[in-house]
């Protein structure tokens, strides 16, 4: 079972998984973070309430989040092809991963920012801070520990999504698990991929929690 070909394949799958997870997470945060900020800022009790925008974004996010990932994966194939020119392999997988993760991240960011003490925001307002200054100098720094915990959750969720993309020809460990374990009944290889995935999740989760703890000055 441990012949060089399989080891090489697993190593490549491992790297591909990391690649998909981190690139997707990064791009999803580029979309989700501002979206989450806008959700909080434009909320009824926010620092710059815009009810219609808040409502509209809420509906879009809920819509995207209510579609099961496997179905979303297939539905967005035309978009994937349009952006990456292909629907196979790990790069193509990034598109559906981002589409699924960005709204999820927006909600995570929203809940982190809503934890920031209203009184502190009011204090900043009393000093003449503009909404933009409040976002960047108060809300984001004050929510930092919570945002880091959220990102650990987001990255591990994206990792598990990435494994699912194996069903439609995405790359990575999920793809290996499905091809060898599901189609060829090679349980050993499938178990190894599962172990590898568990290790990645553990490491990421622990890392996130540690970082959050170090960065939190409240205790």
């Amino acid at each position: 079972m441990f012949d060089p070909v399989i080891v090489k394949m697993l190593a490549e799958g491992f790297l591909e998984t990391l690649y998909m997870t981190f690139v997707s997470s990064a791009v999803a945060y580029l979309l989700g973070l501002p979206l989450g900020i806008v959700l909080v800022v434009t909320d009824k009790g926010g620092i710059r309430p815009i009810p219609w925008l808040n409502w509209f974004l809420g509906v879009v996010i809920n819509l995207l989040r209510s579609v099961p990932f496997l179905i979303l994966l297939i539905t967005v194939i035309p978009i994937t092809r349009f952006i990456t020119g292909t629907t196979l392999g790990s790069t193509a997988t990034i598109v559906p991963l981002v589409i699924a993760a960005a709204p999820f991240i927006a909600r995570l960011v929203e809940s982190s920012l809503k934890e920031v003490d209203k009184g502190v925001i009011e204090a900043a307002q009393s000093m003449g801070a503009s909404p933009l200054q409040i976002v960047f100098k108060v809300m984001l720094p004050e929510a930092r520990p919570s945002l880091i915990v959220g990102s650990a959750i987001a990255v591990t969720t994206i990792l598990s999504y990435s494994a699912m993309t194996g069903f439609v020809g995405g790359g990575g460990l999920g793809d290996i698990a499905i091809r060898y374990g599901y189609y060829r009944y090679q349980t050993g290889i499938m178990l190894i991929t599962v172990v590898l995935l568990v290790i990645i999740v553990q490491v990421l989760q622990e890392l996130g929690m540690k970082l959050a703890k170090i960065s939190d000055k409240r205790n």
Binding site: D117, G119, V120, E122, A123, Q125, S126, M127, G128, A129, S130, V138, P141, E142, R144, P145, S215, D216, K217, R218
Partner: peptide, 20 residues
């Protein structure tokens, strides 16, 4: 905003930035 800078305010719950 500029006028508020010439009015300081303090609160019951202090409202300090906890991460600073």
């Amino acid at each position: 905003y500029r006028t508020r800078q010439s009015m300081g305010m303090i609160f019951q719950q202090f409202n300090l930035l906890m991460q600073r």
